[in-house]
Every structure is written in structure tokens, then in C-alpha cells.
Write a protein that binds this DNA or RNA. Structure first.
Lengths: 213, 213
DNA sequence: TGCGGCATCAACCGAAAGGTGGAGTATCGG
DNA sequence: CCGATACTCCACCTTTCGGTTGATGCCGCA
């Protein structure tokens, strides 16, 4: 496997210094990888991706600051001749995964991945092929298989307010609806999520990443 | 500061290979640190802490497996001549912090801490002194200042189950209580949080970091 | 053009949750 | 020992929520 090819040039974007150091340590043991730079912010990632000649950006989703990793991913991939973006995060909620893929991410990995899997994914991404962690692939399949899990826009809106702690009466006022309509939406939400109470719906939707927390 | 003392002997316990590598990389640049071993499980941490001669254990709270970091911490610190345990986690909820401290942790750090802070905390912990991240210290101060916001252990337990989507009946069975008791706890919780429904309580407690997730 | 999904609303019933008041036990610190 | 807190439980009442049935208008897609 010893190659004379030019190495795969990487950028690491993660707000945790420890994680950046860990990725560097893990990836630099690979002969064909070269970690060109790292950054603690999403803004920094966008900036560096534009100026450096990169093959793959390893991007976290959760940054301490304002800009989200998914938005940064969208900005990076929007450019001509942009590097591939490989999302590397702790969470595996539907919302995160879909947002990342829609933003143009080439792959989606979880931080608990073993080093070999990580290296393999980087090579896959560098080659322009999609790299999904097994867990993620499964979750996507699940989503396709049961489209009932997908809430409508209005339903999501209602459920979000429920999660914020509002009563049906408060929700109806907020959205200019009758309470009957709110209840109607909730009934549909319950059946889609397979639950039978507002708190259970919030719990289910949260773990599936259907709503913000 | 160059010391001829014996080095501070460390154990790293974290289920993320990348984080372990990162901690190793960061800590081994310090002259007076020696990373003796690392482990991916809480069980492994308990085992190694008993057999190796250690000064400080760096312990994550969230492990993929069954045993929780706080429980492992309790088991480790229960022994005679046990090493200090420094909790290093991503989350900073009241529940996690208190559980860790009650379990006998000497310090509590967040993973986004810069390397210098991390090294300083390890030395502080090795000396047997308490090492808290500024964020954590603030949160604890807050808790002291407004004891009304502080939920009791039992109340937190009940509220966590509410957040998980359980009904009063389910909670009463789970905790071997009557429904009257569950309702009683909830009434107290509502008044402490200044809300008047279970969903609002969950929302309030979540934003204040009183419960997980 | 008709079917289905979405969004809207009404009326009704039973069940769950919330509100009030009281009360007994246990523990801990002053 | 006393007082405060936490934890447990009971009874009664009111309000909210959940479940059902049924109905209307709109939009997109086949």
C-alpha cells in the first residue's frame, strides 16, 4: 500500500482542543495523511477551506459559538473545487444527520469510531465517495422505511411549543388556532410517534432529533 | 518548576478513542505527567484503578456501556488509598455535577477546556485539592444562592422520569410510590420552578440544566 | 377529476393531571 | 430537644388533556 501519490490534505474543525489533538495524533500515524491545519471555530473552517488547498475537512457540528457546523459545511461545499466535508460528531439525531447531508457533507461519522474506521472514512471521502457510519446508515434506512415518523411542518411547530412547556390553550393563542385544532394535531403526532401523551411525544421527538432542545 | 519528584501517574477512562489519544497527546507534553494506561469502559477504569499505583484518574461520565462514570467513580474512591478522580465530561448539568461530586470526584472539568487548564486541574487534583472548571463553580454558586431552584434528589428523580415521557402512574410503579406521592413531588417541583404543568417543568429544568438531555 | 394528505374546527366523554389541605415519619443541625 | 426539610401518603375537587367522530376547504399528484 506504500504510495508515492501526494498525501491527502486535511483540515480539522472542532471546538475541543483535546479532540483536535486526538484527531491529529490518530490521523498523522497514517502515511498518506497530512493535517494541514486545525481550527476551533466554524468561521475559521470556512475561511481556511477557501484559502488552503485541501482534500477533506473533518467538521464537528456543535461549536460553542454562533455558526453551526452544518451551515459552515454548506458554505464550504458551495464553492467551486471545494474539499469534501466529513462530519464528525457525538450526536446521531435525524435532524443533525439530514441537515449535514443537505448541507453537502460527503460523510457522517460518530466520535466514538475506532481509528481504523476513521482513516477508512477519510480515504473514502477523499475519493469522493459517501462515507456513513453503520449506525447512521441504519438510521437513514429506518427513516426511509417508516415515513410516518416524519411530522408535517405544522405538527413540528405545535410539538416544539409543547416542548417549550406551553398548554394547548397557550399554543392555540400563539398560532391563532382553536384548541380543537391543536388537539387534532397532537393526536396525529401521537400516532406517528407511537406515544399517548404530550410528555412522551416530546421525549420521543427529542431522542429522534425531530425538535430542537 | 523543573522537578525531580516522581511523576504524576494518570489513568484515562473515556469511550472515545479519539479523546483518549487527544488526552494522551496533550498530557504527555507535560514533563511531570505519566499516562500509565487508558481504558474505554467504566468497568475497566475500576479494575485498573485497583491494580495500578495511580495518582489521578481522568474519568468521562457518559460511557457507551452499562456502568455510568459516576458509579465507577464511587467504586474507585471507596477503596483505601484510592487515586483522585477528575471528572472530564461534555455536559454541565446540575444532576451530573452533583452525582459526580457525591460519588467522590475531586474535580469536574469540561472537555472544551484548554490544555493548560487541564494540566493545572490535574496537578490540583493530584495534590488532593478540589478542581472545578469556572463554569461549574459558577453553577454551584448559583445553586447555593437560590436554594429554591435546587430540587431534592427525589424530586430530580421524579422529574427526570417525567422528562422521559412517563405518566404519574408509571412513575409511581417505577419508584415504588403511590400516585399521591408522585403528585406531591410534582407540586413541589412546580412551585420551585415557577411553572404549573409537567411539560413546562421539563422545559424549565432542561434550560437550567437540572436534568439530563 | 378524484383521491389522499394537510390543516382547520366542533361537540362530547372519560381519564389524567393539577390544586388544596392535612398528616405521619425520618433525618440533620443548632 | 426543637425546628426545618425531605419523603411518604390520603381525600376531594377542578381543570386540562386525550380519544372519538365527523365535517369543511385546500393543494398536489396521478
Amino acid at each position: 500500500m506504500t504510495s508515492t501519490e501526494s498525501p491527502i490534505r486535511l483540515l480539522l474543525a472542532d471546538d475541543h482542543p483535546v479532540v483536535r489533538a486526538g484527531l491529529r495524533a490518530v490521523l498523522e500515524t497514517e502515511e498518506d495523511f497530512e493535517v494541514v491545519a486545525d481550527t476551533a471555530t466554524a468561521e475559521g473552517a470556512v475561511d481556511l477551506a477557501a484559502r488552503l488547498d485541501l482534500d477533506v475537512v473533518l467538521m464537528d457540528l456543535q461549536f460553542g459559538g454562533a455558526l453551526h457546523g452544518a451551515q459552515a459545511t454548506a458554505e464550504i461545499t458551495a464553492r467551486e473545487g471545494a474539499p469534501r466535508v466529513l462530519v464528525l460528531t457525538t450526536y446521531d439525531t435525524d435532524a443533525d444527520i439530514l441537515a449535514a447531508i443537505e448541507a453537502g457533507a460527503t460523510g457522517y461519522l460518530l466520535k466514538d469510531a475506532p481509528p481504523e474506521e476513521l482513516a477508512a472514512a477519510v480515504r473514502t471521502a477523499a475519493a469522493g465517495k459517501s462515507a456513513l457510519a453503520p449506525t447512521i446508515a441504519l438510521r437513514l434506512m429506518d427513516r426511509m422505511r417508516t415515513p410516518a415518523t416524519a411530522l408535517s411542518r405544522r405538527e413540528t411547530e405545535v410539538l416544539q411549543l409543547v416542548a417549550d412547556g406551553l398548554s394547548n390553550a397557550q399554543i392555540s393563542k400563539r398560532l391563532f388556532l382553536s384548541q380543537a385544532t391543536v388537539k387534532s394535531h397532537l393526536v396525529h403526532i401521537y400516532s406517528k410517534l407511537g406515544v399517548d401523551s404530550r410528555t412522551a411525544a416530546v421525549a420521543a421527538a427529542t431522542t429522534r432529533g425531530l425538535i430542537r432542545r
